[in-house]
Protein backbone atom coordinates (compact mmCIF):
# COMPACT_ATOMS: atom_id res chain seq x y z
CA UNK A 1 0.00 0.00 0.00
CA UNK A 2 1.60 3.24 -0.98
CA UNK A 3 0.69 6.83 -0.72
CA UNK A 4 2.45 9.09 -3.11
CA UNK A 5 5.33 6.65 -3.32
CA UNK A 6 5.55 6.21 0.43
CA UNK A 7 5.50 2.80 2.03
CA UNK A 8 3.71 2.41 5.32
CA UNK A 9 5.80 1.27 8.26
CA UNK A 10 3.70 0.16 11.20
CA UNK A 11 5.38 0.08 14.58
CA UNK A 12 3.71 -1.51 17.55
CA UNK A 13 3.92 0.38 20.80
CA UNK A 14 3.57 -1.71 23.96
CA UNK A 15 0.97 -1.36 26.70
CA UNK A 16 1.81 1.50 29.01
CA UNK A 17 -0.04 2.68 32.10
CA UNK A 18 -3.69 1.97 31.34
CA UNK A 19 -3.27 2.21 27.58
CA UNK A 20 -3.42 -0.97 25.49
CA UNK A 21 -0.81 -1.68 22.84
CA UNK A 22 -1.21 0.44 19.71
CA UNK A 23 0.32 1.05 16.35
CA UNK A 24 2.28 4.02 15.14
CA UNK A 25 2.41 4.62 11.40
CA UNK A 26 5.42 6.04 9.60
CA UNK A 27 5.67 6.49 5.86
CA UNK A 28 8.98 5.83 4.18
CA UNK A 29 10.62 6.16 0.78
CA UNK A 30 14.17 6.49 -0.48
CA UNK A 31 15.70 9.84 0.38
CA UNK A 32 16.81 11.89 -2.56
CA UNK A 33 18.38 15.32 -2.73
CA UNK A 34 20.57 17.43 -4.97
CA UNK A 35 23.67 15.70 -3.67
CA UNK A 36 25.17 13.30 -6.20
CA UNK A 37 25.16 10.38 -3.76
CA UNK A 38 21.49 10.89 -2.94
CA UNK A 39 19.92 10.30 -6.32
CA UNK A 40 17.03 7.93 -6.85
CA UNK A 41 19.29 5.16 -8.06
CA UNK A 42 22.14 5.43 -5.60
CA UNK A 43 20.86 6.81 -2.32
CA UNK A 44 21.49 4.79 0.82
CA UNK A 45 19.08 6.83 2.92
CA UNK A 46 15.49 6.37 3.76
CA UNK A 47 13.19 9.35 4.21
CA UNK A 48 10.72 8.80 7.03
CA UNK A 49 7.58 10.87 7.50
CA UNK A 50 5.86 10.89 10.89
CA UNK A 51 8.68 9.26 12.88
CA UNK A 52 8.32 8.77 16.60
CA UNK A 53 9.27 11.75 18.76
CA UNK A 54 12.91 12.34 19.63
CA UNK A 55 13.60 10.36 22.79
CA UNK A 56 11.86 7.37 21.22
CA UNK A 57 13.62 7.72 17.86
CA UNK A 58 17.32 7.35 18.49
CA UNK A 59 19.95 5.50 16.52
CA UNK A 60 19.63 2.54 18.87
CA UNK A 61 15.86 2.37 18.86
CA UNK A 62 15.66 2.80 15.10
CA UNK A 63 18.17 0.00 14.66
CA UNK A 64 16.04 -2.28 16.82
CA UNK A 65 12.95 -1.52 14.79
CA UNK A 66 14.60 -1.84 11.39
CA UNK A 67 16.40 -5.05 12.31
CA UNK A 68 13.00 -6.66 12.80
CA UNK A 69 12.25 -6.02 9.15
CA UNK A 70 15.58 -6.80 7.66
CA UNK A 71 18.29 -8.15 9.89
CA UNK A 72 20.83 -7.75 7.13
CA UNK A 73 20.34 -4.00 6.81
CA UNK A 74 22.75 -1.98 8.88
CA UNK A 75 22.08 1.58 9.83
CA UNK A 76 24.87 4.08 10.16
CA UNK A 77 23.05 7.26 11.03
CA UNK A 78 19.68 8.74 11.96
CA UNK A 79 18.80 12.38 11.40
CA UNK A 80 15.60 13.72 12.89
CA UNK A 81 13.87 17.07 12.60
CA UNK A 82 11.42 16.70 15.37
CA UNK A 83 8.04 18.44 15.42
CA UNK A 84 8.89 20.38 18.46
CA UNK A 85 8.54 24.04 19.33
CA UNK A 86 10.22 24.65 22.61
CA UNK A 87 9.42 28.32 22.42
CA UNK A 88 5.74 27.55 22.71
CA UNK A 89 4.55 28.98 25.98
CA UNK A 90 1.56 26.92 26.93
CA UNK A 91 -1.10 27.73 24.42
CA UNK A 92 0.26 31.22 23.99
CA UNK A 93 0.96 31.11 20.32
CA UNK A 94 3.36 28.87 18.63
CA UNK A 95 6.69 30.53 18.02
CA UNK A 96 7.87 28.20 15.29
CA UNK A 97 6.19 27.85 11.95
CA UNK A 98 6.47 24.22 10.86
CA UNK A 99 6.13 25.21 7.23
CA UNK A 100 9.23 27.37 7.19
CA UNK A 101 12.94 27.07 7.69
CA UNK A 102 14.08 30.30 9.24
CA UNK A 103 17.71 31.11 9.76
CA UNK A 104 17.98 34.17 11.96
CA UNK A 105 21.74 34.07 11.71
CA UNK A 106 21.80 34.54 7.94
CA UNK A 107 18.93 36.99 8.06
CA UNK A 108 20.69 39.15 10.59
CA UNK A 109 23.81 39.14 8.51
CA UNK A 110 23.60 37.53 5.04
CA UNK A 111 27.37 37.71 4.61
CA UNK A 112 28.56 36.28 7.89
CA UNK A 113 25.71 34.09 9.12
CA UNK A 114 25.97 30.33 9.53
CA UNK A 115 23.81 27.92 7.55
CA UNK A 116 21.27 25.64 9.23
CA UNK A 117 22.43 22.17 10.15
CA UNK A 118 21.60 19.18 7.96
CA UNK A 119 18.92 18.10 10.43
CA UNK A 120 17.37 21.53 10.63
CA UNK A 121 17.08 21.60 6.86
CA UNK A 122 14.75 18.57 6.87
CA UNK A 123 11.01 19.24 6.89
CA UNK A 124 9.53 19.19 10.39
CA UNK A 125 8.37 15.78 11.51
CA UNK A 126 10.66 13.81 9.26
CA UNK A 127 13.73 11.71 9.65
CA UNK A 128 16.46 10.40 7.40
CA UNK A 129 17.79 6.94 8.19
CA UNK A 130 21.04 6.15 6.44
CA UNK A 131 22.01 2.56 5.73
CA UNK A 132 25.58 1.41 5.49
CA UNK A 133 25.02 0.45 1.88
CA UNK A 134 22.49 0.61 -0.93
CA UNK A 135 21.73 -3.09 -0.67
CA UNK A 136 20.66 -2.71 2.89
CA UNK A 137 18.16 -0.04 1.88
CA UNK A 138 16.77 -2.06 -0.99
CA UNK A 139 16.47 -5.20 1.09
CA UNK A 140 14.70 -3.29 3.80
CA UNK A 141 12.16 -1.83 1.39
CA UNK A 142 11.50 -5.17 -0.26
CA UNK A 143 10.90 -6.87 3.05
CA UNK A 144 8.66 -4.07 4.25
CA UNK A 145 6.55 -4.21 1.09
CA UNK A 146 6.29 -7.95 1.45
CA UNK A 147 5.09 -7.68 5.01
CA UNK A 148 2.57 -5.00 4.09
CA UNK A 149 1.17 -6.96 1.15
CA UNK A 150 0.89 -10.32 2.84
CA UNK A 151 -1.83 -10.23 5.44
CA UNK A 152 -0.89 -13.45 7.21
CA UNK A 153 2.76 -12.48 7.28
CA UNK A 154 1.79 -9.13 8.69
CA UNK A 155 -0.02 -10.83 11.51
CA UNK A 156 3.01 -12.91 12.45
CA UNK A 157 5.53 -10.22 12.02
CA UNK A 158 4.67 -7.42 14.39
CA UNK A 159 7.35 -4.80 14.40
CA UNK A 160 7.76 -3.47 17.87
CA UNK A 161 9.36 -0.40 19.38
CA UNK A 162 11.53 -1.37 22.32
CA UNK A 163 13.15 1.83 23.48
CA UNK A 164 16.75 2.73 24.00
CA UNK A 165 18.37 1.81 27.25
CA UNK A 166 20.59 4.89 27.08
CA UNK A 167 17.58 7.17 27.03
CA UNK A 168 15.88 7.74 30.33
CA UNK A 169 12.17 8.42 30.45
CA UNK A 170 9.66 9.10 33.19
CA UNK A 171 10.82 10.28 36.56
CA UNK A 172 14.47 10.02 35.71
CA UNK A 173 14.12 12.17 32.62
CA UNK A 174 11.92 14.87 34.05
CA UNK A 175 13.36 15.23 37.51
CA UNK A 176 16.62 16.48 35.98
CA UNK A 177 17.23 20.17 35.47
CA UNK A 178 16.54 20.49 31.78
CA UNK A 179 19.10 21.80 29.34
CA UNK A 180 21.87 21.89 31.90
CA UNK A 181 25.12 22.87 30.26
CA UNK A 182 28.55 21.45 30.89
CA UNK A 183 30.50 24.65 31.37
CA UNK A 184 33.85 23.39 30.16
CA UNK A 185 32.42 22.03 26.96
CA UNK A 186 30.35 25.11 26.45
CA UNK A 187 33.38 27.33 26.85
CA UNK A 188 35.07 25.44 24.07
CA UNK A 189 32.05 25.62 21.79
CA UNK A 190 31.67 29.32 22.38
CA UNK A 191 35.35 29.97 21.82
CA UNK A 192 35.34 27.96 18.65
CA UNK A 193 32.26 29.65 17.31
CA UNK A 194 33.68 33.08 18.00
CA UNK A 195 36.94 32.21 16.37
CA UNK A 196 35.14 30.99 13.28
CA UNK A 197 33.18 34.18 13.17
CA UNK A 198 36.34 36.25 13.41
CA UNK A 199 37.76 34.29 10.54
CA UNK A 200 34.68 34.88 8.47
CA UNK A 201 34.89 38.56 9.29
CA UNK A 202 38.50 38.66 8.16
CA UNK A 203 37.65 36.86 4.95
CA UNK A 204 34.88 39.27 4.27
CA UNK A 205 37.26 42.18 4.62
Amino acid sequence: MTTRGFVKLEIALPEVANLPSSTHCCYVKPHTSKLPNQQQDNTCSLFVVNPLPQPMWTLASVRTIFRQISSASHISNVLLHDCIDESRVSSIGSGVNYDLHINLSILSNPDLGSPLSEEEMLPFGTSVVTFVDRDGLELFLTNLTNINNNKSKKKDKIITWKGDENVSLGFERYSKVQNLVNRDEMEKIVAKSLLEFQNREKEAE
Binding site: L13, A17, N18, H24, P55, M56, G163, G170
Partner: peptide
Protein backbone atom coordinates in the same frame (compact mmCIF):
# COMPACT_ATOMS: atom_id res chain seq x y z
CA UNK B 1 0.74 6.63 23.83
CA UNK B 2 3.79 8.84 23.33
CA UNK B 3 2.78 10.81 26.44
CA UNK B 4 2.54 7.59 28.39
CA UNK B 5 5.92 6.37 27.19
CA UNK B 6 7.61 9.72 27.83
CA UNK B 7 6.01 10.06 31.25
CA UNK B 8 6.86 6.46 32.05
CA UNK B 9 6.72 5.65 35.72
CA UNK B 10 5.29 9.08 36.58
CA UNK B 11 1.99 8.25 34.99
CA UNK B 12 -0.81 6.34 36.59
CA UNK B 13 -3.34 6.57 33.81
Amino acid sequence: KSCAILGGDLIKS
